[in-house]
Every structure is written in C-alpha cells, then in structure tokens.
Design a protein around this nucleic acid. Structure first.
Lengths: 336, 336
DNA sequence: CTGAAAGCGCTTACAG
DNA sequence: CTGAAAGCGCTTACAG
C-alpha cells in the first residue's frame, strides 16, 4: 500500500495538517518540525497524491500541448520546426513546476477544451500550421468556455486569444535583401501565400516589399504554391523551370521546400548557388547538412517555447497578456 | 462556475450516482435515462473531473514518457528517431484512452518514479540512448518501487524490467550482406561499439558476423568510435581517411553519422557510392534527401510506439509481459 | 505554530 | 434499474 500523509503524520508524531504544510514548505510550520517531516517523507518515499491535491486546490499545474498537423501530410512527418520547440516547451514547463500533456490532433478532431474542462490541464498551447479558417470555430469555442490558451502563429484580428510568433514579414524581408546584396536579379517565391497560410503569406509580403524598396519590382518572376514539404517544393520548382524559365534566386517559405528545390535543380543539372541561389526558412537541423549548406531564417525556438509557456501561465494566473512578435534571424550559409 | 455531476443530476431529475453511471456507459442504467443524461451533459458542456475521478478510482489513465537525452549533446538536438516514435506513442495512447505526459530528463536528474508515486501516471515509458550503466541504479529503484515501466532499448540481462527494441544485430547483418552483394571488399564501421552503447554494439556485431559468414574477415579495416551525431561521423571519417586509407564501404551506426561521413567524403573530393558506399541506420526523414539519397536500415517506429504503449498497459493491468524484438528493414537507396 | 474538521467531485459497494 | 452514503487523499479556513 502506498503511504499517505496520515502515515507520515503518525511516524512524525504530528497531525496530518502539519504534514501537508511541511511538505508544501509553508512558513506556518516550525522549521525543525518541517525538516523532520520532510526527512521522514523522503525515507518513506512518500509523494503527495496529485489527484487529491489537484482536486482540493482546483488546479492541476499541468499544461496541455495540442500539436495539430496539416491533415494533408503523412502521419509520421511532423514539421521539424515544431519538434525543436517541443524541447524548449517541456523545459520551460518543468522549470515553472508544470507538467506537460502532449497530444496530436487532427483538425477534424473534437479536441476543444477537453483537457481544461476535465481539469486535467490548467491551460492549452496550440501548435500548428494549417488553415486557420478550419479551426477558427474551435478557437471561438475555447474563448467561450473561458479556456486558457496561447496559440503559436501570426496575429490575426479574426482570431481571438493570444498568439505568439516570429516576425515572418521581417524574415522574408531580410533574406530577400541579402539576396539583393549578393547581386541577384530574377526572383521567384515558392510557398502558399494565401490567407490559409498566414505565416507563409507574411514571408511573401516581406519578400515583395524588399524588392520594392530596392526598385526591383520587375525582378519578381512570380510565386508558386507549395505546402511546407520537400515534395511540394520539388514539384513547384520543376514546374517553374519548365514553364517560366530560370530565376537566379528562389526564396522558399520553408526549409523542406528549399530542400525539394535543390533536388529539382539537381534533376536539371543546375548548380546552387552558381546558377540559382536558394534560401529556406526555419533553420531545421538538416538545413546545415544539405549540399551545399543552406542559407535560411531562424526562428528562435527556445525563446518561442519559453514565451508560449510563460504567457500561458500568466493567463492562468489571471494576468494581462498581449500578442508577442519575436525577431527572426538570418543564417547565411552557402546556397546564396 | 463549472458544472458538477450534481448539477446534471438536478437537471435530469435523477440522482448523482445515476449521472455518474450514465456517463461511464454503465449497463446498470436504463438506456433512456442514460441517453437523456448524456444529452444534458453535452449541452451543459459538462466533463467529468479527472482529478476527482482518478482519486476515487486510484488510477490516472495517464502514461508518462521520459525522454532522456545524451547529456553530451546539444539541448535542442533531439535524436530524430525518437521524434518519429513520439507521434506513434501519442496516437497509441489516445487510442487506448490514456493521456500522455512528456518530460525531457537529464541522466543526472532525480526523475525516478515521481510520476507514478504521485499518481499522475499509471506507468512510464523510458526512451533514450546513452550509457545504460549510468541509470541502471535508477531502473533498479523503479523496480523496487513496483513502478510500471517499459524501456526502449536492447535487452540486457543486467537490466530488470521489460525492454522493447528492434533487432539491431539483424539490421547490421542485413545491411552488410547487401554491401557484400554489391561487390564491396574493404569495410569500415563507424559508431561506438562498447557496452555503453548496446544498440550500436549489436549493429556492429551483425556487421562483423555477416563478413565472417562470407569469409570476408580480412575485408574488415576497423571500427571507429562516434556518438550518434553528424559531427562525430564527420570527425571519425576524416580520421579514417587520414590514417587508415580508404575503404570502399562504410557502415554507420546511425544516419546522422552517415551524413557526417558524406560530408567528410565531399571534403576530400571522394564520390559516393563510386569511391565509397555509405550506409546509415534509422531512416530518419532527412536520409531520403541527402546527396545521394541514403541506403539505411529502418526501425519500424510506428509499430515500436504501439508496442511500447500496449505492453505498458498490459503491465499496468497486471498482465504478464516479456521483452520484444522487432525486425529491422533494409531501405536501399543510392549510397550503396 | 498546531490540530480538528470540512469539503474538493467523483465512483462504487450496499440496499432496495 | 436507482438512490443514499462512504470515502479516495489531500488543502485550508477556523479555532486555539
């Protein structure tokens, strides 16, 4: 049988209330008593029962991370960018004394609020690309239920709730200016740029505006759709080369797209960056090991994870929180 | 205020006990009553309080996943192989009605059993490479505490508890036979092969035995140490080329090592597979996109995740469970 | 500083 | 098939 606080109380010769206080480091309890109780608890391998404690406190000290994938992609292929955020989220949670519940969701799923309604979690972190329109309704529902949540993604006036993201516009702008400095004169952009992909759209807008700023509007060959995958990048680049002729710089909305573009270039015997410069976005671990190593834009995933967690905890504590926009950083390697 | 089962009972004109029964689909309750209660619960957005329910049932329907990283590696660099397992683990959990708590641990941490002792989880999944000797003591402790856990990794008589893994010996054997069939005659193996890395050692033993079987013992140039990273692979391959001369086939203990080897070859102007064939292990997502695409060995992460979860649940339910060894599959691409 | 008591919201034997 | 009651193991006002 697992020990309870009553057992510890008995062994320590104090009341159960005192045990509870001692183990929560209450200042109400005499230091000597506290130490003695803690020592016995440790010896007995006693741990406070979280279910009982949470039930009484009406708080779970747990955060639920809802990762939703684009349903169009393969099950096993999680966007590596989210993965790197997972590490910093778990660490930020444990530093703040919260446990982390992780769940993969389909946009179709009936996920809304389950966790918080059932008191398994005090709040939710929503992590995913995809068509925000699809789940706008669900977010609305979260707000109605007064669920605490933060969302990773572009600020959007149509979406209530707090969102935290990197400055995608600035990233797209910076990487384009970098290509301009390197003397590139014919640009193509590969990646969805519609309202269903607000991050990609912001990167695209930064791209366009950078060209504009340098009076290079005419240097823009066009934009081709692609979801964030290698396959999509390969397909779009192949199409581009066939139908529109060759640019001398391709700005990609994600690293995986850029990897697909590099493969399409290889297919055609094109050399990077001699023939065409290619830049990605995300700085996923692989981007360092492509041939040649890829120039890309880094989102600070460590900071992002920490912000997501700290802002959610503020929300849980009833504090005021506003949207956050973090700077993006250019990583120059050899594809540009 | 959040609704309780008493509120639902009041609205439905039944007792609270009946509400509880209706919502857990008990056959004890009249179908009509059950449906009515469920309808009202849904309308009121009522969810059973998990803390109360778990406390009463003495079961949390939650599994804790402890990912421990090799402390020698960078924080943000999680082994991609584990990542792909994370997806199938979360899915298997939710299919079985369990929630998943995720935590990153350092081998130094004082992690043992916390989750189960505090009733936050019914059992633990241990996922990590690294030196098993380091945490043998902790595993011993888990066993003493009668904690339910399954471990991903090679079976080891020194480690109590259930372990589940892929057949690393068979994988190393198969990939070596494949290289022999392709006519390779000078082999090197890159990857730690000591008892601190039992998976790598098993792959190495498979490699050696395959050579032996084909009377190619003399074709073995040697084994070089490397942890699972790209950098380690690059470093070892560079050393190999400098000091031992050129093999015509390199078997790597992980895909990341192989990626590092490819880079070292490029540094020296060596062409793969013309000069040297290179094979990896794990079939991580990137391996498909290296130049050239990599021949590797796949561990079935989907099945692995499912096995880990289903075996742990059996353990939780008091059923008998034994170690599992799953087959590895050769993925032939263009580096061999 | 300490203890006795109430109560968090459920599930489930017990009685009918 | 249904209800009244006990109790899971805590935390925290309340009283001293």
């Amino acid at each position: 049988m697992k020990a309870t606080s009553f057992d510890i109380a008995h062994l320590a010769g104090v009341s159960q209330s005192t045990v509870s206080r001692a183990l929560s480091n209450s200042t109400l309890v005499n230091e000597e008593t506290r130490l003695r109780v803690q020592k016995i608890a440790k010896e007995m391998n006693y741990k406070v029962d979280k279910n009982a404690s949470n039930l009484r406190k009406q708080r779970s000290s747990t955060i639920a991370l809802l990762l939703f994938e684009d349903p169009s992609t393969d099950d096993s292929q999680i966007n590596p960018f989210f993965i790197s955020m997972l590490g910093s989220i778990t660490k930020a949670c444990s530093a703040a004394g919260f446990d982390l519940l992780v769940s993969f969701q389909n946009l179709q799923d009936d996920w809304h609020a389950e966790y918080e309604d059932s008191h398994k979690a005090d709040g939710l972190i929503l992590l995913g690309y995809g068509d925000y329109l699809d789940y706008q309704q669900k977010i609305q529902h979260l707000v109605q239920q007064k669920t605490h949540f933060v969302r990773w993604g572009a600020h959007d006036p149509n979406h209530p709730g707090i969102s935290i993201s990197c400055n995608n516009y600035q990233g797209g702008f910076a990487v384009t200016e970098h290509l301009i400095e390197r003397g590139r004169t014919r640009f193509a952009f590969i990646g969805d740029a519609g309202s269903q992909a607000p991050e990609f759209m912001a990167r695209f807008n930064g791209h366009i505006d950078a060209l504009s700023k340098h009076n290079l509007d005419d240097a823009f060959m066009g934009q081709l759709d692609a979801i964030f995958t290698e396959e999509a990048g390969h397909e779009s680049a192949t199409l581009l080369f066939e139908e529109d002729g060759l640019p001398d710089a391709i700005v990609c909305a994600s690293d995986l797209i850029a990897i697909g573009v590099l493969r399409a270039m290889r297919d055609q015997g094109l050399v990077c960056p001699t023939d065409i410069a290619v830049v990605g976005y995300d700085n996923i671990p692989v981007s360092e090991y492509t041939t040649p190593p890829m120039t890309t834009v880094q989102q600070n995933t460590k900071l992002a994870g920490e912000m997501l967690v700290s802002n959610l905890i503020k929300l849980i504590n009833g504090e005021q929180v506003s949207d956050q926009l973090m700077p993006a950083e250019l990583i120059i390697r050899s594809t540009s």
